[in-house]
Design a protein around this nucleic acid. Structure first.
Lengths: 132, 132
DNA sequence: GCTTGACCTCAAGTCAACTTGAAGTTGTAG
DNA sequence: CTACAACTTCAAGTTGACTTGAGGTCAAGC
């Protein structure tokens, strides 16, 4: 035990085996060896996969994520992190406005939400934050 | 006046002319006529473009957006809107956690943020919400 | 010992949303 | 009137993140 084969990792992570092989090819994860042809993974790979998912949600590209993992790869630049955080916060604002807009549209009695003043206003807001 | 040509719309919207032609080909916008070969747009197209950007931010595909615009296209299903709103709210939660994580990582004294307990916790949170 | 199913590799395909390139047309400034 | 920048079309290319397919390998159960 303690070694997982690809289907177990796939199960546990929710990622397709092909994705795991792809990630390995991109240098994002490593298999800890082979059993015959077959990749064996140590359980820590699951943590790594979570980290990757985290990075993706944060809007990093896979190549950026893999850079972060390299031993002395581009230092995880703190300014870069802060910058990403700010971008995310901007995005959160927009998404919040939009989600309100959608909820309103769903509840709005007007046949065409497009005509509803509240909705219009939310659109404008969102349009503005888009340009900032 | 009152008719804009493609470069003006491009300027005003921040979208490339090629994108505007592409949107037209996809049925997302219309030009209100031609002057010779050249498309002329009425100013309302800008509002439409905002709406498109809004939809994109909300996570709709262009094809879905264009459906919403069709005269008697698939009624803008209220359940669908609510569902999107919920998805967005989920996403907002995740992004919020991540942005906190990034800010913390940027401030964290630990050389490897990956080892920081607070950071670890944020990762776990985010990993969980990912599966819900 | 043979079949089967889960794995393997490598190249090519997919998808969304655009962009680019080649080759042609046209409104306008000089 | 001519030059030319800005448009036009249409097909093909790009990017990121995967997936699919063809063809091959291997361990385990019958």
């Amino acid at each position: 035990m303690s070694k997982l084969d690809i289907s177990e990792v796939s199960q546990a992570s929710g990622l397709a085996p092909s994705t795991l092989r792809y990630y390995e090819a991109q240098g994002l994860i490593q298999s800890s060896g082979r059993k015959g042809l077959r990749r064996q993974y140590s359980p820590e790979v699951l943590e790594r996969l979570n980290l990757i998912a985290l990075g993706q949600s944060a809007g990093f590209l896979l190549t950026e994520i893999s850079e972060m993992f390299t031993p002395n790869g581009p230092i995880i630049n703190r300014d870069r992190l802060l910058q990403k955080a700010e971008q995310l916060e901007q995005k959160i604002k927009r998404l919040t406005a939009i989600s309100k807009g959608l909820r309103h549209a769903a509840a709005c009695p007007a046949d065409r939400h497009l005509d509803c003043p509240k909705f219009q206003q939310l659109i404008k807001q969102s349009a503005l934050s888009r340009l900032e």
